[in-house]
Simulated scan of single mutants.
Amino acid sequence: MRNWFFILLFVISAGSVFAQSAPKNEPAVIDSVKAKWGKVKNVNGVAMISSNNIIENITLSKEYSTLVTAIEDAGLTETFKSKGPITFFAPTNQAFEKLPAGELDTLLKPNHKLDLNYLITSHAIVGKVTVKDIQHKINSNNGEATFRTIAGTTLIARIDSNRNIVLIDDNGGQSIISKFDIQQSNGMLHIVNAVLVPKTKNI
């Protein structure tokens, strides 16, 4: 009877030691994953990793296939792979579908490469700008913030009645930031629900 008591005591003690040691290993594993991959954010069902650049991340999702094609045709792939930092307001496929019929097809033609380049770079600004940065600038400037794009165009940011950040292009067209603060190795990615169209080019 005494032998069974010591066996039981040994099993309980061993279980207690195992239970205490297991959690100690967990942070090390998590830290290792973070060190290798960086921050991971789910965007349209795809895990975008902060150690990837903008091109590497948007090519992971079919939701940005039109954008990827447009970037390639505009000759901007290396720009969005560069060290940056670049903050990019990325339109989804559905955003491009909101353009007038035939407009995107025209832009994707070789003789409209410069127009396409101008349109895409009108969605990018220099630096790593978070939504908190945008909100702060809006609040510090009487409810309106102005940003200069890589293309030299202007984007105006405001907060609407639903607390969404709305970007307004040169034509007065509005686009809502639907997903935000997706960190990239070369900047920051925000998703917008409409294409931002510059006024000074005929597209």
Rank of each mutant, 00 (worst) to 15 (best):
1 M>C: 10
1 M>R: 12
9 L>I: 14
10 F>Q: 09
12 I>D: 04
12 I>G: 05
13 S>C: 10
14 A>D: 06
15 G>W: 07
19 A>I: 11
25 N>F: 13
26 E>H: 07
29 V>G: 00
33 V>A: 14
37 W>M: 14
38 G>T: 10
39 K>V: 14
42 N>D: 10
43 V>Q: 10
45 G>V: 14
48 M>G: 01
50 S>W: 09
51 S>V: 15
55 I>T: 13
61 S>N: 13
62 K>V: 14
65 S>L: 12
65 S>A: 11
66 T>L: 12
72 E>L: 08
74 A>D: 04
74 A>Q: 03
76 L>P: 00
81 K>V: 04
84 G>A: 13
84 G>V: 04
94 Q>V: 10
96 F>P: 01
99 L>T: 06
103 E>V: 14
104 L>P: 01
106 T>H: 06
107 L>N: 05
108 L>S: 06
113 K>A: 15
115 D>W: 03
116 L>Q: 05
116 L>F: 11
117 N>P: 00
117 N>D: 08
120 I>H: 02
123 H>V: 04
124 A>I: 04
126 V>I: 11
127 G>D: 01
130 T>D: 03
130 T>H: 02
133 D>M: 12
136 H>S: 12
142 N>T: 13
143 G>V: 08
146 T>C: 06
147 F>G: 02
152 G>Y: 07
157 A>E: 07
158 R>L: 13
159 I>S: 01
162 N>E: 13
171 N>M: 15
176 I>H: 11
178 S>D: 15
180 F>T: 13
180 F>K: 12
182 I>P: 00
185 S>M: 09
187 G>P: 06
190 H>R: 03
192 V>C: 03
194 A>M: 11
195 V>K: 01
196 L>Y: 01
196 L>M: 11
198 P>C: 08
203 I>E: 03
